[in-house]
Nucleic acid binder design. Structure first.
Lengths: 196, 196
DNA sequence: GTCTATAAGGCGATAGAC
DNA sequence: GTCTATCGCCTTATAGAC
């Protein structure tokens, strides 16, 4: 039995994967369906069998990103301490430093581009980012910090700002340095917590 | 005598201003020359008298942004203390919080979109950001901090990350909260400095 | 279900009248 | 210098063959 979202040959899945890659590298507006279809090895006109419009395909990429985020966050749950889970989060951006220095953070750039629209896609675009902020807030609250929301924003703003500057200056080390700074910041927050 | 970059009627200037606004609100790829020309009240075909290509117009917007940054930084020079100059910088993003929550930071979003190209414009795109980082580094070094570069990056990453998250979550208060956090951070850096 | 061919419209850019 | 008219290309999307 085949998953309805992944038909025989996995063409739909291939299209979403290719679209995610192309959207990250060139942006939504600059990426054509022909570009995506070619990368997925699917005939251009056939895209419309799986997605009614280009925006529908972009929506599917956003949903795939949310799934990726959920999987990433779930993998951190094996770590016993909130401090280690938070550090594992920021280290992911260090691991992605080379691609970030060239094309930016996949979540940040897509959200940034879609946010400026007013057709509904702008609201869905925040999904991956919102999910990460919620998770970070929970971890920080477990450290005993009452203002966990603000601290979560400070943390992830540091991540996203670092990614943006690393991209602008084409410098992977900028991302690494920022991640190291954030790891020390996480230690400071944990040390100042009410947790015994 | 008329400045060669601002002909009679200021049509070129109007085009650059309109282009800056439209590029900020819709992005480079999604903005058409017809859109820009209409906003500037200039016939579409006439754009090519002032700019050879669309990219040339984008380049002019980048140069205008650098000029705006220079003017902003120059205005801070009247403040006697580096601490106050740095706080004045981040407060500018608080003043822009409403437009940032809707369309992002004008410098950050333009750089983020252009960075992913490979036609030369991607290198020029970092101009405004690079200038701000250089200036912040100088201020922080005046505080007596030896690692002024890293601290400047941390500061401006906080600004840009806050702008990105404020845009994604459509929340001006997120930008304000982040700026207040950065002001306290500036005080901390100043307090830990070797400056007597 | 899959793919080809093509429609319909919008885009950057150009030519040339005034 | 300024503007109108238009070209040629590329894009999304559709119709219909297989």
């Amino acid at each position: 039995m085949t998953d309805s979202t992944a038909p025989r040959g996995g063409k739909r899945e291939r299209l979403v994967t290719s679209a995610g890659e192309r959207l990250h590298r060139k942006g939504v507006a600059a990426t054509t369906l022909a570009d995506i279809a070619q990368a997925a090895d699917v005939p251009v006109g056939n895209v419309y069998y799986y997605f009614k419009t280009k925006d529908d395909l972009v929506r599917a990429v956003l949903e795939a990103q949310v799934d990726q985020v959920e999987a990433m966050l779930a993998s951190f749950e094996t770590l016993p301490q909130p401090v280690d889970r938070l550090k594992a989060l920021v280290r992911r951006w260090d691991e992605m430093r080379d691609v970030i220095a060239r094309y930016g953070c996949p979540f940040g750039t897509l959200a940034s581009e879609l946010d400026r629209r007013d057709d509904g896609l702008d609201l869905e675009a925040a999904g991956p980012i919102r999910r990460i902020l919620e998770w970070a807030e929970i971890q920080i609250r477990q450290l005993g910090q009452p203002d966990a929301r603000e601290l979560a924003i400070t943390l992830f703003a540091g991540v996203q700002g670092g990614a943006l500057l690393a991209g602008a200056l084409r410098d992977p080390n900028l991302m690494s340095g920022q991640v190291r700074h954030l790891e020390r910041w996480i230690d400071t927050v944990a040390a100042s917590s009410t947790q015994s």
